[in-house]
């Protein structure tokens, strides 16, 4: 016996027979935007690592001169 909730969920997921179009469209929306966010997170880490290396190399040997 399947519960009423399960049946309602199945009906929702079926999207009136258009599930194969509706869900990939929503997936595309969220996956591509997540990619945009992830790209920024990765770039931020890379830039910070680079800048930290730069600071470490400069060290405290000489006073920093702003460019």
């Amino acid at each position: 016996m399947r519960s009423v909730e399960t049946l309602r969920m199945d009906k929702f997921l079926a999207m009136g027979g258009f599930a194969q179009y509706v869900w990939p469209a929503y997936a595309a929306f969220f996956v591509i935007l997540a990619g945009d966010v992830l790209a920024t997170v990765v770039r931020r880490r890379r830039v910070l690592r680079e800048l930290r290396g730069r600071l470490a190399r400069q060290g405290t040997r000489r006073p920093r001169v702003s460019a």
Partner: peptide
């Protein structure tokens, strides 16, 4: 992120890092 990268060498970026 772009500002950190473009302004490298500036004091405020060093402080931020």
């Amino acid at each position: 992120v772009a500002l950190l990268s473009l302004e490298r060498g500036k004091d405020w970026v060093a402080d931020e890092v």
